[in-house]
């Protein structure tokens, strides 16, 4: 028997944020006496790195070092409301709320610094290294800790801010389906290369080469990890996973990792990706959501590649070896049909 190779492509969009909107998130920021900024949230980090990227966004907007920013989440007594981490929404929604809160806190910080520097707040800027300076004369500066101490003990001012972001909920016209479902759309294209063993029906994904356009990246390493992890999950969905192997029959439902088939490191294909950045109009620093779509795009690319390899169009996933062998019986690419009745 033979090993057949094929290539397939898929190009997809993915909406950022809860469908139709109406999903608020809040952030509160305050400075401690010595200039540590605490961002209070009730948002959840699923492992994608929310606690990290939100600290980056907060530090950037405040104009203070990353190390000066703490994330305090998730506690409903101390953190203001967040709709939750899903729908590729968290960086977009929470990030926007943090920017709003940080701008308010930054304004107070600059006003206090202006008093200390005997300058106008409009003439001040932050250097991102922990100092506030007079634009044009950087030697006239004051460090953040001194500003925070002065705010607390000299001026009685709270360096703090409130942030809230919501995309107003869109109604759906029940007759036409007219609606505003998304905040922004990210895009991806995946090229998959596969090899099909016509004797066993097994598919090896040789490579997944992709381009992702995700607005601006707050943390490129974390975006990279989403792309690779998502590519692997997409491959897993395309070829292996199901809770009902003979769907719609509910029989043979797996109850353990030994029965629920997920590929392991041996099945990891060569993954290459390029990330394009076109800022979204409404994302914090131009971000779009990336978390979910990375698992979507590889599925049709892989299935199209298999169809290309065997010459039979496949229309369902997971494409298990059994389904491949059955499809091969119809393949014009094989002179001898695969043995049946095995």
């Amino acid at each position: 028997m033979a090993k057949l190779r094929g290539t397939g492509i898929a190009a997809v969009n993915y909406p950022t944020g809860m469908n139709l909107g109406g999903d608020p998130s809040q952030a509160l920021i305050h400075a401690t006496t010595t200039g540590t900024f605490v961002i209070s949230l009730s948002s959840t980090d699923l492992g994608q790195g929310l606690k990290t990227v939100i600290a980056q966004i907060g530090a950037e907007t405040l104009g203070v070092p990353f190390e000066n920013v703490l994330i305090d989440t998730a506690d409903t007594d101390t953190g203001p409301h967040c709709m939750g981490t899903f729908a590729s929404r968290a960086t977009h929604r929470v990030g926007n709320a943090v920017i709003m809160a940080a701008k308010e806190a930054r304004k107070v910080m600059l006003e206090v610094a202006a008093e200390e520097l005997e300058a106008s707040p409009d003439d001040l800027d932050t250097d991102g290294q922990g100092n506030i300076y007079v634009k044009g004369s950087p030697e006239r500066k004051i460090d953040i800790t001194s500003v925070a101490l002065a705010a607390h003990f000299k001026y009685g001012r709270s360096i703090s801010g409130r942030g809230m972001y919501i995309k107003p909920k869109s109604p759906v016209d029940p007759e036409t389906g007219k609606m505003d479902p998304d905040s922004t759309e990210a895009h991806a294209c995946v090229v998959a290369e596969v090899e099909v063993d016509t004797e066993t029906g097994e598919v090896t994904v040789l490579s997944l080469k992709s381009a992702y356009e995700v607005g601006c990246q707050v943390n490129p390493a974390l975006v990279r990890e989403q792309i690779i992890g998502g590519a692997f999950m997409g491959m897993s969905h395309a070829l292996y996973e199901t809770t009902a192997p003979y769907y719609p029959s509910p029989d043979h439902a797996p109850g353990s990792f030994s029965e629920y088939v997920i590929p392991g490191p041996h099945e990891l294909p060569h993954i290459e990706s390029v990330v394009l950045e076109y800022p979204s109009v409404n994302g914090p620093y131009g971000v779009k959501g990336v978390g979910e779509m990375t698992a979507n795009a590889p599925i049709p690319a892989i299935i199209n590649a298999i169809s290309n390899a065997i010459g039979v169009r496949l229309t369902e996933y997971p494409v298990t070896p059994e389904k491949i062998l059955r499809a091969l019986e119809r393949s014009p690419k094989l002179k001898q049909p695969a043995q049946t009745g095995a």
Binding site: I228, G230, F232, I262, G264, P265, L268
Partner: peptide, 20 residues
């Protein structure tokens, strides 16, 4: 050899690349 060693450990997030 690394792949052989970790084959019994499930990671659902990373796709194993960063772990290797």
């Amino acid at each position: 050899e690394v792949m052989d060693a970790i084959a019994g450990n499930v990671c659902r997030c990373t796709g194993y690349e960063s772990i290797l």
